[in-house]
Design a binder for these strands. Structure first.
Lengths: 341, 341
DNA sequence: GTGAAAGCGCTAACAG
DNA sequence: CTGTTAGCGCTTTCAC
């Protein structure tokens, strides 16, 4: 049967002192409150002895803080987000926070629903990979003085903390790398750039292409088509029409997977003949044949930065004081697929 | 500034009735408590109008239920667990539960720490992929009448709910499939079988080998070596010593990745010459060259079953009444890598 | 039919 | 230096 956990009251009774004193000691305010060394020690020892753990629900109700953070991404089962989540989780636990993960499927309605839900559940802060149309919701969160850090993408004209990579630079460098390896007809497969990160990736590509006097070949797949499974057909058509491509740059890891799948089905030799780069790394890329060059986002850096921004916000009364917009650099991991053929 | 959320008190005051009545109505006990239709409607309408959402922390403190489930796996960034988590999350939200994910790294200490932490945090239930030495902890949880469902593996002699796949059968079938495709020297790379799922996989392999009068070739890597990175060297040595293998069956997806990595480095032709099967599927397997045969666990089934077992437990006062041990079948997805060469 | 009030476990202002 | 006490917002018993 469930043994009732010990409460602060039990300790006080046992030690014949008041709950206040116990509470102060347990919250490290013994010094501040001038509680005697001996008493302090006695309380601490006894608490340890009976393995006292505060009821966090009661604490939360009282303090208004839940020690819970929400980490909302597009899809937690996506390799990139899962890896990020794992690192963030570790850091958060270290700091005494628990993390609730959730997937918004890049859907505005689902995002709003989730945010409302958790907001009423009094979570302390949000890390959000925002879907395109939730700028207002985010704005309200900030107005309500709730810590928010945007991840992977942000909104133009919204003053909100964010951690993103320099997509334009990463994309430019990757494209330039292909060009340096003698590729001349470089395709770019992306999803429609109604999100900041996709915009940056596209413009980086275009910039490199332009600077080298080449001709762009882009396929922009509407986001909703990706989930509806129509994306694959669009990619297939693209490669059927663009016969003279000698290289291709996929703007996300799932587009790379789709692309490889199509090559595999229609024209396996393309996998070796085409220059290939994928945005976002995958454990399998280094053991693929050929090994696949990728733009790798620094997962550790990103998670660390997220927490560095989040923690101070959690303490502050006014969240809007200063906003941090951090941009980190991605790394181009050069493997076989992007080398001169 | 943060607008204070409406409380049940506000509603009561506004409507000039007592909080009790409001609470009854809001909790659907209007009928039971013989509260008039009109009043009921008035309360409901007003609650909706001002978009009242109960403070769940207060609710939790009062009822002792937090509406939070813990989903503890080995590593949330592992493809298999991430996919499972994603599905479980969806079902849980549907039922009004939030899910906290965490990774125990198959480490007993971390597992215990996490369980203690969450237990004191009064979560309502646990789904756990247990590390080898936490049988006692689990037992205590059950004694404390806390709902637990074990996932992926279980403990002999512990009466606890669980959802696992039939590892022995899956492993037997996979091995038999290799044998049917004329492979005679089939290696089995696994981690030390101190966990039920690994035991099943090993015995299934041995059984098929025995029944066909073949000779087993197994490599059992101590689990701690895997994380220390020594695993890779052990695998490498295995393949160097076992020169006459014509096929290999990897018992987990990360072992497959390690294996492929080694082939890639040492002897790329092996990738095509060897018969290969991997336990656990990966999105990349179907676009690898050759495409890789895998034992695929039915993620949807598993998550659904987990919730089917969990939900009733959440309502009950006595968790030990009946225990459900569910075994689901894995599916062998036959691709190029396992076909006769 | 409805309301007053106790109390979940904790924190902190205030009193002594 | 230490204790008393008032809530945080909610559920539920008991009284009217």
């Amino acid at each position: 049967m469930k043994k009732k956990p010990v409460s602060i009251r039990n300790i006080a009774d046992e030690l014949k002192i008041s709950v206040t004193t116990v509470s102060f000691v347990l919250n490290g305010k013994a010094k501040e409150k001038h509680i005697s060394k001996e008493l302090t020690k006695k309380v601490l020892d006894y608490a340890k002895l009976i393995n006292y753990k505060p009821n966090q629900i009661a604490q939360s109700l009282r303090t208004g803080k839940s020690k819970i953070l929400v980490f909302m991404v597009e899809d937690i089962s996506n390799n990139f987000f899962a890896k990020l989540a794992r690192i963030f989780e570790d850091i958060a636990y270290d700091k005494g926070y628990k993390v609730i993960f959730c997937s918004n499927e890049n859907d505005d309605e689902k995002s709003n629903e989730l945010i409302t839900l958790f907001n009423f559940r009094q979570v302390d802060g949000f890390v959000i990979v925002p879907s395109p149309g939730i700028k207002d919701t985010i704005e309200n969160l900030i107005k309500d003085n709730i810590p928010v850090v945007l991840l992977d993408r942000f909104f133009d004209g919204l003053d909100c903390n964010s951690v993103v990579i320099d997509n334009e630079k990463a994309s430019f460098d990757a494209t330039q790398h292909l060009i340096d390896n003698q590729f001349k007809n470089i395709g770019f497969v992306t999803i429609a750039p109604d999100q900041s990160q996709m915009e940056g990736r596209l413009s980086g590509y275009i910039k490199a292409i332009d600077e080298n006097g080449l001709k762009p070949h882009t396929l922009e797949i509407p986001y909703d088509q990706v989930y509806k499974g129509k994306g694959k057909e669009l990619v297939r058509k693209f490669f059927e029409e663009e016969k003279d491509l000698d290289a291709v740059f996929f703007a996300t890891n799932y587009l790379t997977q789709t692309g490889l799948e199509i090559f595999k089905e229609n024209n396996p030799s393309l996998i070796n003949d085409l220059g290939i780069i994928s945005f976002d790394d995958n454990d399998m890329y280094k053991i693929y044949s050929p090994t696949i060059t990728s733009v790798s986002q620094p997962l550790n850096d990103i998670s660390t930065k997220l927490m560095e921004i989040m923690l101070p916000l959690l303490k502050k009364k006014d969240v809007t004081e200063t906003t941090h917009k951090v941009m980190v650099n991605a790394e181009l991991i050069i493997r076989q697929s992007s080398l001169s053929k």
